[in-house]
Structures are given as C-alpha cells and as structure tokens.
C-alpha cells in the first residue's frame, strides 16, 4: 500500500514537471540542432546558408588556405584566438578564486544575522545590466578615469596608465563581473564546514598552511569546483567585456563567432566555432563530474 502511494507520488512528480522538462529540452536542444545543421551547410552570398552539404566550415576552423599563395596550413589566427580565450578564462577563474575565497570565508564566519546582509550585498551587482557594469569599469580604468586620477593625484604614478584596451582591462572586467559566481558556491561550501576540524588540525600539530591545504581545501572542494566551472564557462564565451574593455583589437571566441554571423557573412563557420566552444565547455564539465565523483569516493 505504502509502495503504490510512493509510486503514485513519483509518477505525479514526473507529470507535473513535464511542461518544464519539455520546455527545457526544446529550448536547449532546438537551437543546438539548428547550429549543428548549419555547420555542415554552405555559406549564403550575403547572409544565411544555402542548403548544400559542405565540410568547408570544419576545415576552416583549424586550417587555412593562404589567400595569396594557396598553401594550406594550421589556422594560426584561429588558434591564437582560442588560446587567448582559454588563457584569459583560466586566469579569471584563478583571480576570482583568489579574491572569492577570503570573501566567502569572511561571510561564512559572520554571525548568522549579518550573513544575509553580506550575501545580499554580493548579489546587488546582478541587479544592473552587464553592459552598464562593463561601461562603469571602463569609466574607472580609462586614461582620464577615476583610478588614474587618484593614482596621479596621490603622486603614486607620474603619468596616467593606459590600462583600458589591454588584456589587463579584460581580466579586471571579467573578474569583477564573475566574482559573485565564485563567492556564492564557496560560501555554500564553507557554510557547511565544521570549524572544529581546524582546531583538531592544530591539536595534531599542523601549521596554518597545512590546515588550509590538508583540511579546509579538500573539504570545500565541491564549492571550489562548482565556482570554477561557473566562472570559467561564461568567461570562455564572453563577448561584451573583451569588446568594450579590450578595445576590440584582440578577439576572443565570442567576438570571433559574432564576426562570422555579422560582417564575415559565414554562418557555417560561426556555427562550427560555436560547437567547438561547446566542446570545450563539455570537457570542462566532464572534469567537473570526475572531480565531484572522486570527492564522493574520498568522502
């Protein structure tokens, strides 16, 4: 009797979630299928695609036929763009972690009543549009911006620094934008952390670094991994930040894809690139699943 009730409950649960699931599957797979088909078609003359099977886009992703002497070689420009995206995303992840860990630790160690306020403060930037926040950072960094005004005003530097339009500016921007995505999972992990374990560590003659390395970090690892994925994935596809703060001189994958759908008029290549981006994200997620699986084994 109890079992059938249980079954009914489970079945009802499925039925109730059916609309949401359908929407999710359609919304997630629909565009993806279109992109996957487009990647194997021929580019249209002015935009769009012609329905002729072609593998040219995939060839173009990795190889280029020199437009002047016809020799085929590895697409140096594309690899440079991919590498820049991956490198900047990894650095962003590292930076958000560096700033995020002490922040999350600070919040988690506040009295219960204050924590809500601190978390609330962390989420405030989400209330503002990403573009507006990026332009705000631009105002801070530009040659006649606040940062340079303060630094020259205090005679720390003799002349304003050209930070805007460099990779550094992109890094600062992405770190700022994605920091909350790192802090929140870290906080969730630290919040569950049993602080008596630290004392136990000290009792067993561990130094502060050893406690951090051998006790705290392994236990909050799920939070670290989740935060890193949450930061790394959107960084990889970032479009606005490199476009506005990087000055558009150097592309990241997102900008490169946009070029193919816009002025480049090569939708199949854009689609193939989007799929490659998805592949990189997929690899990152496999890493995530593996990391959390081994975590369970350890636990």
């Amino acid at each position: 009797m109890a079992r059938t009730a249980e079954q009914k409950k489970a079945r009802d649960g499925w039925l109730l979630s059916l609309p949401a699931l359908t929407l999710l599957i359609l919304a997630a797979s629909g565009p993806l299928i279109i992109i996957a088909i487009y990647a194997f078609l021929t580019a249209g003359e002015y935009s769009g695609v012609i329905w002729d099977l072609s593998f040219k886009a995939w060839f173009q992703v990795l190889f280029e036929k020199d437009i002047f002497d016809g020799t085929v070689s590895l697409a140096d420009a594309h690899l440079t763009i991919f590498w820049r995206s991956v490198r900047l995303s990894l650095l962003t992840t590292l930076l958000t972690f560096t700033f995020g860990l002490p922040t999350a630790w600070f919040i988690a160690t506040r009295p219960l009543k204050q924590r809500a306020l601190w978390l609330f403060l962390i989420t405030i930037p989400f209330w503002t549009n990403l573009l507006v926040r990026t332009f705000a950072i631009m105002e801070v960094l530009r040659v006649e911006g606040i940062l340079n005004k303060i630094l020259t005003g205090l005679h720390i530097i003799p002349e304003p620094l050209q930070i805007l339009y460099t990779d550094t500016a992109v890094l600062i921007g992405m770190t700022y934008v994605y920091l909350p995505l790192m802090v929140l999972p870290l906080f969730a992990a630290i919040d569950r952390f049993d602080f008596r374990l630290i004392e136990a560590g000290y009792d067993l003659y561990a130094g502060r670094l050893t406690v951090l390395r051998r006790v705290i970090l392994p236990i909050i690892r799920p939070g670290i991994v989740a935060g890193s994925i949450l930061v790394f994935v959107p960084s990889l596809g970032a479009y606005v930040t490199p476009r506005v703060l990087g000055g558009g001189k150097k592309m990241m994958i997102g900008n490169f894809i946009e070029l193919q759908f816009g002025a480049g008029r090569n939708w199949p290549l854009g689609s193939a690139l989007a799929l490659i981006l998805l592949l990189i994200v997929g690899i990152a997620l496999i890493f995530y699943v593996r990391a959390s699986a081994s975590e369970n084994k350890d636990g």
Binding site: I67, H78, M251, A263, R265
Partner: peptide
C-alpha cells in the same frame, strides 16, 4: 557595392588575422 562572396571571404580572412 557590397563585395561579392569570394572577395568578402578574403576580407574576412584579413580582418581575422588583423584582430587575432
């Protein structure tokens, strides 16, 4: 005029190299 596709492709290749 808007350039024909073959010329456009060369422009895009140059443009990509320029912004890499």
């Amino acid at each position: 005029p808007a350039c024909p596709k073959p010329v456009q492709d060369i422009h895009t290749a140059i443009w990509t190299e320029l912004q890499k």
